[in-house]
Structures are given as C-alpha cells and as structure tokens.
Write a protein that binds this DNA or RNA. Structure first.
Length: 200
DNA sequence: TAGGCCATCTGGTCCT
DNA sequence: AGGACCAGATGGCCTA
C-alpha cells in the first residue's frame, strides 16, 4: 500500500466538505468553488465535463469485449434518467459506488496475493508485480500440466479412478493444448523464475 | 528524472 | 433499478 487513500481523501473532501448544498454547487463551472483537484464530474447543460484532467474517456475502442457499440440512445436516456435524481442523491450514489469499487479492487488484490503465495518463486525480498504473478502462474500451471501428463501414462488404470471419463477428457484437452502451443512450459517457467530472481 | 507500478475515481455497459 | 464489471485517467511512490 503505497498511496492508500490519497485520491479517496481528496474525493471525500470534495463531496462532503465542499458545500452543504451540492444541488447548487454541481451546476457551476468546474473548479470555480470546489477544491482544486476534485475528481467529481459536473454537468454543464447536457454534457459531463471532467474535473481532474481535460480529457475524459470516450468509448471509441469498442469497450471491453466489444460492448461499446451503438451508445447514442443509451447514453442519452441514461443521462436523462440520472437527471431525475438530485445532485445530493447522485453524490451519495457515487460515494457508495466508489466504496464498492474499492472493496472489489481489494478483493481482487487479495486474490492476487493468494496467487503469489500459491506459486513458488525464488525472489522473496520483493513482491511480485501483478503482471509477473499472472505470467508466472500461467507458466507454472503449464509446467505442472506437463509433469502430470508425463506421469499419467503409468498410473491411469481406471479402476482406482472414480471419474475416469472426466479425467480422460481433461487429459485429452491438455494434450491438445500442449500440441497446439509447441510446449516448452517447464523450461520457460524455470527461465522465468531465474530472470525474476535476477531482478529483471 | 523518467518509467513502472499501483490505488483510486469515474462513467458507460452488462447482468440479475 | 441497482450492483458488478470494465477501462481510461490521474497522481503518488519507488527505483534505476
């Protein structure tokens, strides 16, 4: 936790301390009376203006997973809907939403931490970054898969396996994947551990 | 000081 | 309708 609460503190101030009557406040020019650096967006006429920077994202990239197309009507109607509630209510919802998002991200980080602890790596003085964790985990799984597949020839008797059909399907799937990906996972994983260990 | 990583805010979209 | 999810934006901290 390097910068915990830095933005949230600012935002909380902007929402809760700026003015007892946000209905009036939020209709004014950004930065005119609220604290500098507040991240709340304000509505000017029919458009939403960014508080913090001059830029605001416009979903031109098609959004995550291609969800961004055909937004005009949806956006307009959702804005209309938003206008029904008072600025104060919007503020409350925004704060609640921020809190939920924070909790969600904390859960995500907890999951990352659990993953860090689940995968063996040499370097313990420095925490694995998220991207390192994901990459290492992927290659670790592949390495384990390789090992299991290597062992599987001798131990697949079927009699002592309660769900042989499932195991067999899984095995086929793994074999297929390994074939497709020209697998060098074990050596890759070891190389990666080595490179992380070097501090790269 | 630049660049990497991260936490947080935010608004749009999806899902229940 | 409201919460979850997503991704862009921003700024702080740290390290080479």
């Amino acid at each position: 936790m390097k910068s915990k609460g830095k933005a949230s503190k600012r935002s909380q101030q902007a929402w809760s301390e700026s003015d007892p009557d946000p209905d009036l406040q939020l209709e004014t020019e950004p930065g005119s009376s609220e604290q500098e650096g507040s991240e709340a967006s304000v509505q000017l006429g029919d458009s939403w203006r960014p508080r913090r920077g001059e830029r605001r994202r416009v979903r031109s990239d098609g959004g995550g997973g291609g969800e961004g197309g055909g937004l005009g009507v949806t956006r307009a109607s959702s804005r209309r809907r938003r206008q029904h509630s008072s600025a104060k209510e919007r503020n409350v919802r925004r704060l609640e939403s921020n809190e939920r998002e924070r909790q969600r991200m904390h859960k995500l980080n907890n999951a990352f931490q659990a993953l860090r602890e689940a995968i063996p790596h040499v370097r313990t003085d420095k925490k694995l970054s998220k991207i390192e964790t994901l990459t290492l985990a992927k290659n670790y799984i592949k390495a384990l898969t390789t090992i299991i597949l290597g062992m599987s020839g001798g131990c697949r008797t079927g009699a002592d396996c309660p769900d042989e059909a499932t195991a067999s399907r899984l095995l086929q799937c793994c074999q297929q994947r390994l074939k497709e990906e020209d697998d060098e996972s074990l050596s890759k994983y070891l190389t990666q551990i080595h490179s992380f260990n070097q501090g790269s």
